[in-house]
Nucleic acid binder design. Structure first.
Lengths: 378, 378
DNA sequence: TTGAAAGCGCTAACAG
DNA sequence: CTGTTAGCGCTTTCAA
């Protein structure tokens, strides 16, 4: 062994290895991408360990608040971390830990107040347990939805699917890969996937019962979008409710989901013999209210109008809207509870269906005594 | 150097390493947590490689659509992946790649329509580029906000801070660690952080100009929450606008941000000598409209009312509300553009301030000819 | 075209 | 109480 040769390299080696740091010849370092404008190397646990003169394990322990570290060491580590502006990589941490502390939510439409509130409820509840929320919007696109769900799930520890549009068979197939999974406004009969829903039927039934108690026998449904499942639910419930009442007549008008849709329906509403209008949702009801007003039809004297959802404005329309309120935030909150249980190895528990609460305001009243009713029936 | 010492370790290694697969004695496997109910091992790239009889590198290539793989091999790999229900771990991928394909958004309040729309705009724009969105709500909590921001940023490749409440000094300090960062409705003079904002002053100025052109000289401001920066902005702009008009009188009433707040202010509005009311936002204006109506005050005959924001309902109030519209979605969309540019090493570009658009509807009209105006002034 | 090997940054079981 | 070591699952030179 040549003296000079060994001198330069050898003695150094053991020492360096001892630190558990830099190999002799730093191997090809892949360039860091991203990182924005500031191109400093970004502190790693290794660098902090080096600076503090301890092992990476110790740094890890300190960063995670392990009590089994000598105070002086801990202090040194913290100082080094501070100095280097060290921020543990959550990605690396997730990989090592096998969990991300993140859950995902897929919604069909972020513009829908229902989903906005679910999002909020879920986000807050998750935050309470130190978890973050990833959101994705499927834009009502079925194909997209499945893809998004799988991808979102892979980035997180659990998934909430709000009003998924995918066909049952596909959902069933997906449900395994997506677990832990919670379904909102959709159930999967026979599966163990927890499902929280709003019982639209009950809401509609309550509305119909209310109208009937006021003497209404001829109803008109302002239907929502044909593709909407909640429209299907509400429509079916309406038909069911009327079917059980022999003397109840139900007409239907294809309408939509917006104020304009309801507004445009006003003329038809006026020309029909219905004494009460059941609108798909509050917006439609509101539009109808507005259109009827313009036509000189007085609500509820001439015709009663009901909405659904109890959006914040429902109480401020003229007249204030009789509608069914649904616990939107609560849905998100409870979704978290279920998900959290699942993530901790618990089991699904019983599914629940939230019962809408009927809010009787001033857009409904007794059936007009002198309406076209008798004339038409004779 | 002891022989045995070297013996124990040296010979075994190379063989094991050679296969690149299973060590002789499978080492302690840490139990997989999470994973929901289904406790199958979860396919990894290694298992797929094994099943397909290729190396992990090849599997990786196939999964990423590299064209340099023999068709037959690729097919085998795909088959194996399919059979094992293999889903590449995005966490591992992120770690290896150094990027997460995720960006974060921090908002003070998810219930605020402004932020809901920003969220939507940002989410959609990000999705266009294959990125996901992480959301967090600070609940108007300044301390929380900074923590959330740092944490969210560490989980993603970039951050959008909407209307951050943190003090300037702290924001300035944070801005480096948070890069790539885009600010919404907040700027950081002298920094390179891109900032997109709504020019509330311009909106207020437009409203005042409109009112003045109708002859109004005595205005009443229904102020928003004291803590709200947008209230401060709007208020300041209002004072400034009135200051330049010597004959303009500005009164102010502490009000709030909700319908109820505006509603409660109606009586005071009636009893004041102001001919026009500038409300903090549309909700307050709407409440005032409603309250005034109940008091028999006719808008705009007796008094004009303006809102701010152009919420969806503004056009449906009675009378429809004159207000200033702001491009909420656009803010999110452009935030993405800036962020994306930054993430790709581009530079910030010029900050922009979106000018609200004045929407003149029917809640404003000429100053009452026979109002209390002359009487009061004499 | 394919595989071996060296990471990415962090955690944790196991010795000392 | 601290360090060593072996992963977590994927990507990417570099050689063959």
């Amino acid at each position: 062994m040549s003296l000079t040769g060994d001198h330069r390299t050898e003695p150094a080696r053991p020492a360096e290895r001892g630190t558990g740091a830099e190999p002799v010849a730093p191997p090809v370092r892949r360039g860091r991408r991203g990182g924005g404008r500031s191109d400093r190397p970004a502190a790693t646990i290794g660098r902090v360990a080096e600076a503090a003169g301890v092992s990476r394990a110790t740094v890890s322990r300190v960063m995670n608040g392990s009590p089994t570290v000598a105070p002086e060491l801990a202090a040194r580590v913290r100082a080094a971390a501070e100095a280097l502006q060290y921020e543990p990589s959550l990605v690396a941490r997730s990989l090592a830990l096998g969990r991300t502390s993140t859950v995902s939510l897929i919604v069909p439409d972020l513009a829908n107040p229902m989903f906005q509130d679910v999002l909020r409820g879920l986000s807050n509840a998750a935050a309470t347990h130190g978890h973050r929320l990833l959101v994705a919007e499927s834009n009502e696109n079925v194909a997209e939805e499945a893809i998004l769900a799988v991808e979102a799930r892979r980035r997180s520890d659990g998934l909430v699917l709000a009003s998924p549009r995918v066909p049952e068979a596909e959902l069933r197939a997906l449900s395994e890969r997506l677990a832990p999974l919670v379904l909102l406004n959709r159930d999967l009969p026979g599966s163990t996937v927890p499902s929280l829903s709003v019982d639209y039927s009950a809401g509609i039934a309550a509305i119909v019962a209310h109208l009937r108690s006021l003497g209404h026998r001829r109803l008109l449904y302002l239907a929502g979008p044909a593709a909407s499942t909640s429209n299907r639910d509400r429509r079916a419930a309406l038909h069911a409710a009327c079917a059980t009442e022999p003397v109840c007549t139900l007409a239907e008008l294809a309408c939509g989901a917006t104020f304009e849709d309801g507004h445009a329906a006003a003329r038809t509403v006026r020309d029909t013999d219905a004494t009460a209008v059941v609108a798909f949702n509050d917006m439609v009801a509101f539009g109808a209210l507005s259109g009827l007003h313009e036509l000189g039809v007085v609500v509820p004297r001439d015709v009663s109008v009901t909405g659904f959802d109890d959006i914040p404005f429902a109480r401020y329309t003229t007249p204030p809207l009789t509608t069914a309120s649904i616990p939107r935030n609560e849905l998100g909150r409870q979704a978290w509870d279920r998900l959290w249980t699942l993530m901790n190895g618990g089991s699904a528990g019983h599914n629940v269906a939230f019962q809408p609460r009927l809010l009787v305001r001033e857009s409904t009243g007794p059936v007009p005594a002198d309406g076209p009713d008798p004339a038409e029936r004779s």
